[in-house]
Design a protein around this nucleic acid. Structure first.
Length: 528
RNA sequence: GCCCCCAUCGUCUAGUUGGCCUAGGAUUCGAGAUUCUCAUUCUCGCGACAGGGGUUCGAAUCCCCUUGGGGGUACCA
């Protein structure tokens, strides 16, 4: 009887980074565990000592934690204010469970399900070459040591050859399995060879260690990539040899890169999840997006919370076809989440990118100012990392880009417009330029919306009053407002895009506005 | 080579027991509206049941073949 409480696990090997594919597998296990009210276990399969590294382990733990895939049991790990892991079925590192594997291996050896193999790697390779040469439909171990006599074995031992342990696969047997995703599948064991369970020296290999652990940890459902499908057959046979029932298996299709091939290191899709974090992808967006890779939340909604996902999730509904990774939609999703945040939330999330980019201590010194600055870009970014670059014109005099320079030259009178406008702004009570103390201006005025701008008694020129004055100015000067705005924005920000012009003027403050309006056109002309 | 799996707009998908599908949503792309630019928002549009055979009164939905993809075939996981 399978354990009554649903128990799922994600069992990565710390031999590389955690990419979106692995994260999705972890997520589906996590979601199913939560959906069923069971436990989510994290187990580290570190038996490949040559390739396992602590760095990889850290990336995996942190990546999972970042995405909010909290594990009930497994390695203990602190992330922000929470501690994950622990549990009564440990240890959760396979290299700490060697005695368990040895004990089970002994059992299998005694029952005849396993046998010692003394073949050298060279001989194995030779066998394979010969098989290939004669185009054998079967490639794999030939069972050379499958039926060694005691004498033969003793002879090998005397030579000092350390054997590995192989699993004695049934010959030509049809194994019928029910996969939660694939349905009924039949596999003939003649495709499979007697695979190695334990290396010479006692470190187990995947298919063996995995079964011992799934058994010991009372795992009820195994959700993993379809590359493990045949492993599922091998593992099922080990469970049977042990007289145990195997868990439910669900083999999900892989995530494909944009060309339809396997995810490779050079594809953006295979960045570590921590790289996504470091590039300013909101974790909710990444979570939401990868949930959609192979699974549909509903017919008419793509954006949902993690609780909603847990509520709706069923492995049976995961598609059978591989899904291609689409950066465009991920980026859209990121923008979608950023726009849904409050401005304060955005500011808090952006801190990590703002602090290193801004002058020392700037953020802490004038939070209201930066709150306004950031608010102007909430609808204009998809990744948090874009913020410093977008805001740079505020503290560094911008070099007009090509499009902006063009706007500055477009009208013959532009230079005059700018200097006249500088005179106008000079007469207005603009807030002082950053980093000077801007008084209460930033507290009183909330950008980019002018809805909650204060009334006429505000001692500062607000975007609304600046706009009114500007419109009046262009009207008397006989300048078309639409034409006027472009060179001004170009002079002030160096680009032809961005926030409303009067938000720009308000944020920039008096001195910077005057400097740029009076200086930039000269510099542009001199460089052309 | 052999084995297994898959197949709806460019992409992610809805379509669960065949009829309500002249195939729905999202994204991308195109057009328009709003507007000081960009962005947001809104409206409209382009765009798919891989092909061929069946079964059936009726198929995107069931069966077969072909084609096309993916995976496996380790002393990796």
């Amino acid at each position: 009887m399978i354990h009554p409480t649903p128990r799922l696990r994600f069992a990565p090997s710390p031999t590389g980074n955690l990419h979106l594919g692995g994260a999705r597998t972890a997520m589906y296990n996590w979601a199913l565990a939560r959906h069923l009210g069971g436990a989510f276990v994290l187990r580290i399969e570190d038996t490949d000592r040559a390739r396992s590294s602590d760095a990889s382990l850290q990336v995996i733990l942190e990546g999972l934690a970042w995405l909010g895939l909290d594990w009930d049991e497994g390695p203990e790990f602190r992330y922000r204010d929470r501690t994950f892991g622990g549990g009564d079925y440990g240890p959760y590192y396979q290299m700490q469970r060697l005695d368990r594997y040895a004990a089970v291996a002994e059992r299998l050896l005694a029952s005849g399900h396993a046998y010692r193999c003394y073949c050298s790697p060279e001989r194995i390779a030779e066998v394979r070459e010969r098989q290939k040469a004669r185009k054998s439909p079967f490639l794999g171990y030939d069972g050379h040591c499958r039926d060694l006599t005691d004498d033969q074995r003793a002879a090998f031992e005397r030579q000092g050859i350390e054997p590995n342990l192989r699993f004695r696969m049934p010959k030509d047997e049809v194994v019928k399995v029910h996969d939660l995703i694939r349905g009924e599948v039949e596999v003939n064991t003649k495709q499979l060879d007697d695979w190695v369970m334990v290396r010479p020296g006692g470190v187990p290999l995947y298919n063996f260690a995995c079964v011992v652990d799934d058994l010991d940890m009372k795992i009820t459902h195994v959700v993993r990539g379809e590359e493990h499908f045949l492993n599922g057959i091998k593992q099922r046979l080990v469970f049977a040899a042990l007289g145990a029932e195997c868990p439910h298996y669900a083999h999900i299709p892989l995530i494909l890169n944009q060309k339809g091939g396997k995810l490779s290191k050079r594809d953006p899709g295979v960045m570590s999840v921590l790289e996504y974090r470091d590039r300013g992808y909101p974790e909710e967006a990444v979570f939401n997006y990868i949930a959609l890779l192979g699974w549909g939340f509903s017919g008419d909604r793509d954006v949902f919370t993690r609780d909603e996902m847990v509520d709706a999730f069923a492995v049976e509904n995961v598609g059978k076809a591989g899904a291609k990774f689409d950066v465009d939609k991920l980026h859209w999703m990121c923008g979608e989440y950023i726009r849904r945040w409050s401005v304060d939330e955005l500011l808090a999330r952006a801190e990590r990118w703002l602090v290193p980019a801004l002058p020392d201590g700037a953020l802490a010194a004038q939070p209201a100012f930066w709150r306004n600055a950031v608010a102007c870009y909430q609808e204009r970014i998809q990744l948090l990392a874009e913020l410093p670059g977008k805001l740079a014109w505020l503290w560094a005099r911008p070099e007009p880009d090509d499009a902006a320079a063009k706007n500055l030259r477009k009208h013959a009178d532009a230079a005059q417009w700018l200097s006249a406008y500088a005179d106008l702004l000079e007469s207005l009570p603009l807030p002082p330029s950053y980093p000077a103390d801007r008084g209460d201006a930033d507290q009183l005025v909330r950008l980019p919306s002018q809805k909650d701008a204060p009334g006429a008694d505000c001692r500062w020129a607000t975007p609304a009053t600046i706009e009114a004055a500007t419109r009046a100015h262009t009207e008397t000067a006989g300048i078309k407002f639409g034409h006027f705005v472009h060179p001004v924005r170009a002079a002030l920000t160096g680009t032809n895009k961005g926030p409303g012009l009067f938000d720009v003027v308000f944020l920039l403050g008096k001195q910077h506005c005057l400097d740029r309006l009076r200086d930039v056109p000269n510099r542009v002309q001199s460089t052309t």
